[in-house]
Design a protein around this nucleic acid. Structure first.
Lengths: 248, 248
DNA sequence: CGACTCTTTGAATTTTGTCAAACTGAGTGG
DNA sequence: CCACTCAGTTTGACAAAATTCAAAGAGTCG
């Protein structure tokens, strides 16, 4: 089964080109990568901690959360996944998954076997480098999250996270101006920020009152990007985008 | 300039063999890797956020901290480095550093040029995989830290970090029984755990009173490993060691 | 013996969590 | 079309965890 996106609308290619310069050959090879398409309903786990998958999962549309459950039963979301991401690419080299990945919305995904990925990497060493780079950027995002959770108060922490989401969404074409769909509940933000739902709610209200955000239902609008960036102490360098789309 | 360790005492080989199975050829190639040796005093930065290094830094002995400084001037340590680690291996594929790395103690290090690393990877694709795997494990450690900082209280957070340090040190042969050198100050723990020095102090006292640890100066001893593991909800899976050295 | 860094202590304050309940809005089935 | 359900949001009062500030010990090094 082959994905049949025009190259421009292939989320994987679009994503990789936001962090790496591909040749025509490489773009074509990625275009020809076979994947098993699937639609997964919201609030379903795609993979679970402890799994030993033999394939990885490309997100074509929708949102996922990569998370851990502590022994005490608390959930920590360690990153959000969006179109173009392969949130379990690590499983190519780490046999046992140390995280679970669940959908926040209905998602269209493409499963790519590790064998196919390995073949692709063998034939195109620069694609190895591109994927490696992608996992390194993912690592950079985790580092920033450690810093965000460890060293910022809830208000600034939330501001920072919203900045990151906007920039990452813009890199894959999912932002119009300073507005985007953001189907993340307050409970999910809480699990990502390491605070409680109640506190997320209070912080969001304060941010609305301060004119930093307009957030209603699944829709986010940022009336004052500079102010939000400042509140979140946000500097997009760690996202390592080829073209710095956060300049605006 | 060549490092002249017998293979068993080459920290890089020892570290890679704790997470990957090397052939004799590959071991030899790593053994022959040329590096510029240096000794760096304690409390010195090796590299700084914003740098664009053309080489990476192998730690031969001593401890480092990888950290960020927030706009508000607070420091967050995102991981500790020890013998065998290449804490800025990422710079091979990410041009601009998003973190700084400083020494906690005097360190012996070996600088390896990116050109040499790239040549090695081209000639030995399995070494590419080994290095990639190493960076993926580093990513797994960041994920665990996000969870630790986000979802555990200070006491359990500290217990978890001590467990991780012991297991990682054991993997490179720096633990005798349940004792090791641990030249990390309370202020540094504070910056790693996302709490204050004062609070670190109170937590450590409580842990001592509970019989979880004996910590004096640079020396850590763990009289009751099971109890400490339980307090930290520690499961070493995320370290992805080849031989699970935490089983004991 | 200073000079220093690191550790320890106490009291007051702030941030965040807990608990419990009410409110809102979108969908469902009668 | 309305009552009902259900997930998500909002509110208030109170409690717990962690911070802040300030100062006093302890240990090490020159």
């Amino acid at each position: 089964m082959h994905a049949s996106f025009p190259s421009q609308d292939n989320p994987l290619i679009r994503k990789l080109e936001s962090i790496f310069t591909l040749t025509d050959d490489e773009r074509q090879a990625l275009q020809n990568l076979s994947m098993q398409l699937a639609v997964i309903k919201e609030d379903q786990d795609i993979v679970r901690e402890g799994d030993r998958p033999s394939r990885s999962c490309l997100i074509l549309s929708g949102f996922t959360a990569t998370y851990k459950i502590t022994a005490g039963g608390k959930r920590q979301i360690v990153t959000f996944g969006m179109a173009g991401d392969i949130p379990d690419l690590q499983s190519l080299h780490l046999k046992v998954l140390d995280i679970s990945i669940g959908t926040l919305t209905q998602c269209r995904v493409g499963f790519i076997t590790h064998d196919d990925l390995r073949n692709l990497c063998t034939r195109y060493p620069r694609i190895t480098a591109a994927f490696w780079r992608e996992t390194l950027i993912e690592g950079a995002i985790f580092r920033e999250w450690v810093t965000n959770v460890g060293r910022r108060e809830a208000y600034n922490r939330m501001a920072h996270m919203l900045c990151e989401l906007l920039v990452r969404l813009r890199a894959v074409g999912l932002v119009e101006g300073y507005s985007c769909d953001l189907p993340i509940t307050q409970g999910e933000f809480a699990d990502a920020l390491g605070i409680t739902t109640v506190h997320v709610n209070r912080v969001l209200q304060q941010m609305r009152a301060d004119g930093l955000i307009e957030l209603k239902g699944d829709r986010l609008n940022i009336p004052d990007w500079e102010k939000l960036k400042q509140a979140g102490e946000f500097d997009p360098t760690y996202l390592h985008l080829e073209i710095d789309q956060a300049a605006a």
